[in-house]
Amino acid sequence: MNPRGMLAIYRFEMARWKRTLWQSVVAPVLTTALYFLVFGSAIGSRMSDMAGIDYGSFIVPGLILLSVLTQSVANASFGIYFPKFTGTIYEILSAPLSPLETVASYVGAAVTKSFLLALITLATAALFVEVRVEHPLLMLAFLLAIAAGFCLLGFLIGLLADNFEQLQFVPLLVVTPLAFLGGIFYAVGTLAEPWRTVTLFNPIVYLVSGYRWTFYGVADVPLGASVAAMALAILLPLLAIAWIFRTGHRLKQ
C-alpha cells in the first residue's frame, strides 16, 4: 500500500477544487437556486401537490441529484483527462501506486467534492422551501453511493476521451437529458402511458426515487430496485475501469 501517494493525489485534486471554487461550487449552487426560484416559487406556487408533497419541496432531492450527477461526471472526468492532456500523467504512471489506489484517490476526491456540493445545495434549498429528511443516515449513504457511481463513470470517460469534445459528450448529451427525464420535476405516476412505462427504462428514475424516499418516505419504484440501480451504477464503471487498467488500454502504450 502507498497511503502517502494516495493522499498526495487526493490533496492535489482537492486543491484544484479550491482554486476553481467559483466554477465548481458557486455556479452549481446558483443554478440550483434559480431552479427553486423558477420551478419552486414562480411556477410551483400555482401547482398542486406532487405525491402529497408541496411541489417546491418535492423537487429538492431531484435537484440535488441533478447537480451531483453532472458535477461528479464533469469533475472526475476532468481530473484524469487533464493530466493525460498536459502529459503530467507520466508521473502518476511511474509512481509506486496500484491501479486501484490511483482510481480510489482520484474518485475519492471527486466523491468528496460531490458530497460537499450536495450538502451545500441542500442548505441552499432549505432557504427557499421547507425540507424535511425522514431517513438522514440513508440519505447520506445513498448520496455517497450515487456520487461514487457517477464519479467512477466520470473517471471512465476521462480515461477514454481523446479530446475535450468527447469529454463533454456524455455529461451533456446523455446524463443531463436522462436526469431531466428522470423524475426530478414530476412523479412517475403522473405520466400517461406509454411514457410511464418508457420512463422506467431510464436508470436515473430509480436513483431519484430512492433518494427522494429518504426525504419524504414516498417512492415511484420499489426501494430494492433503487438500491440495485445504485449498486449497478458503481459496479459497471468499476468493471470497465478495471478492464482498462488490466490491459493498459488508453493509459499506457
Partner: peptide
C-alpha cells in the same frame, strides 16, 4: 501550470510514498 514550485515538488515526494 497552476501549482507552485514547492507544492509540485512536495506532491511528487508524497506520490512516491
Amino acid at each position: 501550470a497552476f501549482e507552485t514550485v514547492w507544492d509540485t515538488v512536495a506532491f511528487t515526494r508524497g506520490l512516491f510514498g
